Computed example of a mutant assay.
Amino acid sequence: MHEVLQPRVENPCLKRRCSHICLIGPDLKGSCWCPKELMLATDKLNCISFKDSSFLLIAFPTMVTKMFLSKLPYSAIADITKTKLISLTNVKPISSIDCIVQNMSLFFAVESGGFIAKSKFKENSLKDWKKIVPVEDSVTSVAVDWITGNIFWISTAKPQIQVATSDGLYKTILIGDGLYNPLCIAIHPPTGVLFFSKN
């Protein structure tokens, strides 16, 4: 466009103070953008790493997927928002997962008994997993206390809520008598409260 045809306005990006890239739109307003490996924070000014954003872990029968919850540009959705962390083709289907974000540990249980396992995840991949708690019964739900590291789970054939240490030791039954059709368990570590739902 010839210089004479360009509107004379102050550069809106000077006031915007974007951390990385500022683009001027047709309305002559500046908006902040980020390189492909970063995303725009909620302040709409600064770019942050994907690892610093909120995410959701989703368990499928034979894999665990991590999905970032922040709004992303359409071009990045296919390869960044859904990242397969682990594929478990050599074990029974996954029945439940939980994680400790502080040390990036993923805990998962498998259907039809067997075990509860643990793995570390870093960026978009999981390190080798290992069995930590042998379980004789099916597990419908697992929850981990991120303060103590204790692992809680619900077994089904004998409806019970059980607990063990993070290395699988000192297994004990917390609630056994009078528990019918328990479905899900959750822990609120700061208050030490355990929640569970029944069918």
Rank of each mutant, 00 (worst) to 15 (best):
K120M: 06
T89K: 12
K122N: 08
I86T: 06
W129Y: 13
L40Y: 05
T81S: 15
N103S: 13
I80D: 04
P73V: 05
V64A: 00
M67C: 03
A117R: 04
I86A: 04
I48P: 10
T65K: 10
I116L: 02
W129Q: 05
F55K: 01
N103M: 08
Q102C: 10
L57D: 05
I116C: 01
M104L: 14
D79I: 03
F55D: 00
S31N: 08
C22M: 01
K44V: 01
A109H: 10
T62K: 00
Y74N: 13
N90G: 03
I24E: 15
I94P: 04
I77V: 15
K118S: 00
S119V: 03
V91S: 13
K51C: 09
L40K: 05
N46S: 14
K66F: 06
E37W: 06
L106P: 12
L56C: 06
E123K: 12
E111P: 07
M67E: 10
A109M: 09
K66Q: 11
L57M: 09
G30C: 00
T42Q: 14
L56R: 00
T89C: 06
S31A: 09
T65W: 04
F68I: 07
N124C: 11
S31R: 09
G114K: 02
A76F: 12
A59N: 00
F115M: 08
M67Y: 07
P61D: 03
A78M: 02
I77A: 11
N124V: 06
C99R: 13
S125L: 07
N90M: 07
L56V: 02
F108Q: 00
T83C: 14
W129A: 11
L85H: 02
M67I: 03
A78N: 11
F108V: 02
C22F: 01
P35A: 07
L23E: 10
S125Q: 10
P93S: 10
